[in-house]
Design a binder for these strands. Structure first.
Lengths: 198, 198
DNA sequence: GGAATGACAGATTTTGAAATCTGTCAGCTG
DNA sequence: CAGCTGACAGATTTCAAAATCTGTCATTCC
């Protein structure tokens, strides 16, 4: 890599790390590699990130933010009723996860590793997603189409019940033929449970 | 181990294999170990099981049958309405899985390995469980308390939606404090979805 | 003086040779 | 003869030495 003479910023380190991860995968991507790609000593990288774990976490956060940006738009989509929002949201989440698992396997693997380690970036990602779910459920309650006692608890239940379609541990199953239908069957059942009965 | 002079039956091999697995875990349990425990040559073991994989599969089948025997009783419990049966069934499934994961970690690990490999024993185990679910759902439809178009599809949706509470990939999470409540929240939501609306 | 370096200790990973394992089968044994 | 053995080829695993990596910090450089 050309040792660019620009200042060494956190952002440049993150970009280089992502590149190294993409090329080598999470198991074989070292801080030394990142430094080499930037044309600096590895000590310099440690000036910006206290540990290798912190660096991985930051890269994953950046990647997650980029990848699931569009989802939050659905939460406030005025042209959709809460039920349609929920359907679109789950469909969008699943589509994005599956696409990334296929298109960027190495970065997805990094995310998976962090997920099993309860990394900070993954923790906030999940908190972010359940927060979005809570807001949709709340909107449904406000509109009178949903009846639930505690939107936040319900949101977590929805998230848990759909784990098979967003938890990276199931990534392999996402390629099998009938999955789309499986997601729909689960979401149908859950939406029936949310609906008001009077 | 005392080289018992009884005939070498499949059953004796299975018992010895289970013992070896319990002692060494799935990674370090070899066919040679099993043969040594029985006081025979490993060639004799291959007379009864074509491959090591077949042996592992048979041991796991035996273990699964023993472990989840009691569940099937709930399916036909006349004293419970279908909704109560479903609750009891899920609670029982979760309790059994969690107990086994804690009490017999090595055998549970063997089961987990087979699960990720889509082993035959695990496949029938899952088919068996969804079959039981289907029968409970069907009973609910017959009784008029549930309304669903296709009990088998619904049963699979129920099974997928509760994966977090029976899929061995989540075993680690089963020890955390709030899990019981999480299962209840999901089951509540699903049952609301099953109930008839008129 | 603030940023970068590179040498260093201890931890982790790689590597390749030796040991063990899987699955087969010709022959032994009772 | 039915059931068991043990030697064998090729695959896999183990193990210990060598290489590399992580994280620190005194020193160098601009």
């Amino acid at each position: 890599m050309a040792p660019t003479s620009e200042a060494l910023t956190a952002e440049r380190i993150l970009a280089a790390t992502e590149e190294v991860l993409r090329r080598h995968g999470p198991a074989k991507a070292t801080v030394v590699d990142v430094a080499r790609a930037l044309g600096v000593s590895h000590g310099s990288v440690y000036r910006h990130f206290r540990t290798k774990a912190a660096l991985r976490d930051a890269v994953t956060k950046r990647w997650l933010d980029r990848t699931f940006e569009s989802l939050s738009g659905i939460v406030t989509a005025e042209d959709l009723d809460p039920e349609a929002r929920l359907r679109a949201w789950f469909a969008g989440l699943f589509a994005a996860k599956r696409r990334k698992a296929g298109d960027e396997p190495e970065l997805f693997a990094t995310f998976s590793v962090l997920a099993t380690e309860n990394g900070g970036a993954v923790g906030s990602h999940i908190a972010d997603l359940t927060g979005q779910l809570t807001r949709i459920v709340q909107a449904g309650v406000d509109a009178g189409t949903f009846t639930v006692s505690d939107p936040a608890t319900t949101a977590r239940a929805l998230f848990h019940a759909t784990g098979r379609f967003h938890d990276p541990r199931y990534a392999r199953e996402w390629e099998q033929p009938g999955v789309e239908g499986e997601l729909e069957a689960v979401v149908d059942l859950l939406l029936r449970g949310l609906r008001s009965r009077d």
